[in-house]
Amino acid sequence: MVKKKIRGVFSRCYLGLILIILYLPILMLIIASVNASPRNKAIWQGFSLQGYVDLFENETIRQALITTLLLAAGAGLIATVLGTMVCIGMMGMRKRTRAAIMGVTNIPLLNADIVTGIALMLLFSRFVELSFWTMLVAHVTLIIPYVTLSVQPKAAQLNMSAYEAAIDLGATFPYAVWKVVLPELMPGILTGFLLAFTMSLDDFSVTYFTKAPGIHTMSTMINAEYRRGIQTEIYALSTLVFLIVLLALFLMNRRSRTAQREGE
């Protein structure tokens, strides 16, 4: 019994320690965002919200934010549609073809981002001008494996008899897919989309190599600007990003709890 107690205390201490390591840097960003000190953000010189005011007037950041969100949403959507389609399509294939497709799917996932970025840059620079659209294509390519790998297990578990019953009862193929197959795949599709969206938001390397001059995402904007003057705005932005993410987590948690209670 005593041993169990000691282990419990140890566990708690360890969790606390890791939490501190994980959140300390974020706390530092938040402190820096409200620091009035004009140059060195690590030296406290009084409280100020000027960074937040500047943030909303800063055109560079606004543009970068819009580009980032458009890219993530657009690429996430395209990747989700393509990834879901291939998972439905794969069900009618032989095992070997399926394995080949899954093998190719793993390439962008396991390949170093820098190599993916360079490879796409070589392709684009040969045939087209770099633009927002090439960035979109690059992001889809980077994130598509996350969709396929999230949907595929759900497709493999799919109950085929429900689909066959729908067909027997006169449903057309698209109707049966829409009404019977897609609802069953939905959890995987949602997970895949969210994962793809996050990976697109987070990407630096691929964007860096495929971006058009003059267009920035958050990542490349930070890379271009962090040594220069707009630091406070970036810290203010990161504080806001963190708060939004935290809020989303709390909402998700509450929703899933309510869902659980309703399920019981």
Partner: peptide, 20 residues
């Protein structure tokens, strides 16, 4: 809670380490 920092842009996370 332990995965949450992953959802911050990784450039921002790196920037935080610069501050430290």
């Amino acid at each position: 809670i332990f995965i949450l920092p992953m959802w911050m842009n990784f450039m921002l996370r790196t920037l935080a380490w610069r501050l430290i």
